[in-house]
């Protein structure tokens, strides 16, 4: 067991607590301090882990570009130390690290490098680069960490859906379903619940693509409810918007507007102004009730009045 570095351990711990409290800027600061301690320790696994945590915190704070920079910096820093996978060839870096790593430290490094691929996929998806996201997610899926691989399958499926690739979407859905442990399962309840919510979202997208909006709306509603229970509000808002799209295609404009209103207000409270504005605008389609219309208009007015800092206070 490696000697304990209290400063680095405290920095990681503070960052994790800040993430649980959705104080993403503070978490990014803590993870930056953890990365500095890891470099001082010359610990590749810790450098990669701190880079992944920092990239995740920045992505949660609404800074996908900063997230990509943090991931690239961590990969470069690990590659510069020359005993693990080279930067720019991260698809092979994680397996090679796992193969060449010595015991627990090697597995930690391989898992951290795969996590860097995972966060890169999410950041590219957020930046509007589904092709890059699909490639990064494919690298992350090679990890032997089931939870990480399942999350990568979700990202790959979302990227495939954005690219209009129904076959890839089906493939990722099946991969995700295969990775999920049975419910209730030993030591993986949260992972199973989150994974089933992800699976429901991918199912909804498949139904929507297959021309069955009613089934899609049902699956999306399931995903939204599960994520509400898991405190995954960003995923919940995405599922609500997906349900709104399905209901709109099913001709239920009023219900669809309600879903978009809920998704938009949730996104606004989480500081995602652009996404919130887009969903709130869809809540003001013809045929919606005046109450929904007024609520959407009021939410947009609050967005216009709030400064970006105020709006992102949750982060």
């Amino acid at each position: 067991m490696p000697p304990d570095d209290a400063a680095m351990r405290l920095a990681f711990g503070s960052g994790h607590l800040a993430m649980q409290q959705r104080r993403f800027d503070l978490a990014a600061t803590d993870f930056g301090r953890a990365a500095a301690e890891a470099r001082a320790r010359d610990d590749r696994a810790a450098i990669a882990a701190a880079g992944f945590d920092l990239a995740t915190a920045r992505l949660a704070a609404g800074d996908p570009d900063g997230s990509l920079r943090a991931a690239a910096d961590a990969r470069r820093s690990v590659a510069a130390r020359g005993r693990a996978g080279a930067a720019g060839d991260a698809a092979e870096s994680a397996p090679r690290a796992a193969a060449t790593g010595q015991g627990e430290g090697g597995r930690d490094l391989a898992r951290a490098l795969a996590a860097l691929d995972l966060v890169e996929a999410a950041a590219r998806l957020r930046s509007g680069d589904p092709g890059g996201a699909a490639r990064a997610a494919a690298r992350a899926e090679a990890s032997d960490d089931a939870a990480l691989s399942a999350r990568a399958a979700l990202l790959h499926g979302l990227a495939a859906d954005a690219l209009g690739d129904g076959i890839a979407l089906r493939r990722e859905r099946d991969r995700l379903a295969a990775l999920l442990p049975p419910l209730p399962g030993k030591g993986g309840t949260d992972m199973a619940a989150g994974g089933r919510a992800d699976l429901a979202e991918l199912d909804a997208r498949l139904f929507l693509r297959a021309g069955d909006p009613a089934a899609a709306a049902s699956k999306a509603g399931t995903a939204a409810a599960a994520r509400r229970e898991l405190l995954d509000y960003r995923g919940m808002a995405r599922a609500l918007a997906l349900r709104g799209t399905a209901l709109a295609r099913a001709g239920q404009a009023a219900n669809a507007a309600g879903c978009f209103l809920a998704a938009g207000e949730s996104a606004a409270e989480q500081g995602d102004r652009d996404q919130a504005r887009a969903w709130l605008a869809r809540a003001q389609q013809p045929g919606v009730s005046s109450a929904t219309w007024e609520a959407a208009a009021e939410a947009i007015r609050r967005l216009d009045k709030a400064t970006p800092k105020d709006s992102a206070s949750g982060s």
Binding site: H16, F52, D53, A112, A115, R151, D190
Partner: peptide, 8 residues
């Protein structure tokens, strides 16, 4: 040290 993958 790593955040859970669901945090991404």
């Amino acid at each position: 040290q790593l955040l859970p993958p669901a945090a991404v």
